[in-house]
Design a protein around this nucleic acid. Structure first.
Ligand SMILES: [Mn+2]
Ligand SMILES: [Mn+2]
Ligand SMILES: [Zn+2]
Ligand SMILES: [Zn+2]
Lengths: 155, 155
DNA sequence: CCGCAAATTGCAACCGAGTTGCATCAAAAA
DNA sequence: TTTTTGATGCAACTCGGTTGCAATTTGCGG
């Protein structure tokens, strides 16, 4: 599990022909192991447990991974960047989901179908960014029902 | 012109039954007069020419206007909020256009037509946020052609 | 017009995410 | 192993935005 992602990460970094450093491998492995997009803080916390990598280095590694398309960064209105390992299943242009309750951000694999967003005359549209907001599986009504039942069982 | 927006702004603020202050009227008037969404800095610059209102006050007024739906704020991946007077022509949910060249943000009045963005099972979609990126009228190829001609004329 | 209470403002200090300069360190080429 | 070159650690910094609190305004009654 953890070891496997680590090796995958190392291979991916090595493939870029650039230097294979602990920091790069560790950050990429963390992203690969994550189910959702991670903030800088989440990444740092998960890494610092083992190695003592400086936060500036984490920032620089994230920037590097993004430039090499090994990761992509997602902007968010809470003014915090979130990062995701670039997996093949989500194509170049994909939408994102942001949970209104826990704040978690998830990539939506399926290509988004946006029909004709008309821009004013003279404007030229180049790309479309789309974010769906709502409740994730962990925060939705089903999950709340589950946790209510759990509470009843406890007594 | 400038005087007219000012009076409109004053009326709008008075309608809320809250206190009508110089700062509130000035900020709202600035937003009403603007053709595009303005950053805090742009607003402050345009106001400071006349009155000497503190930047913190501008922040608080913007927050207040937003809460009263007299303005709405737009998040942007440059980590800067932009504000727009809430005009009736752009409905409650509308898309935004961000120019990749000058960074300007414009509200897109027309309702956006997004068909079926499918979210993972267990997820519940509540709202959709859409940003079109590209070149605005002032930065597009037509505008560049115009400015090239202007340069030729100059010699 | 005057006095009062409550809301608003100005100021200074603060916050947190991200960046920069520079000396030191380590990957990999030689 | 030595050398070269790029990566890292650390401290200081930037910048948009926020907070606490005392001083000022606003709107209201009288
Ligand atoms: Mn994504
Ligand atoms: Mn808008
Ligand atoms: Zn959630
Ligand atoms: Zn432009």
């Amino acid at each position: 599990m953890a070891g496997a992602v680590h090796e995958v990460a190392e291979t991916l970094v090595r493939r870029t022909r650039a230097r294979v450093t602990r920091a790069r491998v560790a950050v990429l492995a963390t992203l690969l192991a994550a189910e959702r997009a991670l903030t800088h803080h989440e990444i740092e916390r998960r890494i610092k447990r083992n190695l003592g990598i400086d936060r500036v280095t984490v920032y620089r590694v994230l920037e590097w991974l993004t430039a090499r398309d090994l990761a992509h960064k997602i902007s968010d209105d809470d003014r915090v960047w979130r990062f995701n390992a670039a997996k093949k299943e989500h194509g170049r242009r994909h939408a994102h989901f942001k949970c209104n309750s826990c704040g978690g951000v998830t990539c939506l694999d399926k290509a988004m179908t946006v029909r004709s967003v008309l821009v004013p005359s003279g404007f030229r549209s180049q790309e479309i960014e789309l974010t769906v907001k709502g409740l994730c599986a962990g925060c939705g009504p089903a999950a709340r029902r589950r946790s209510r039942v759990r509470a009843q069982h406890r007594h």
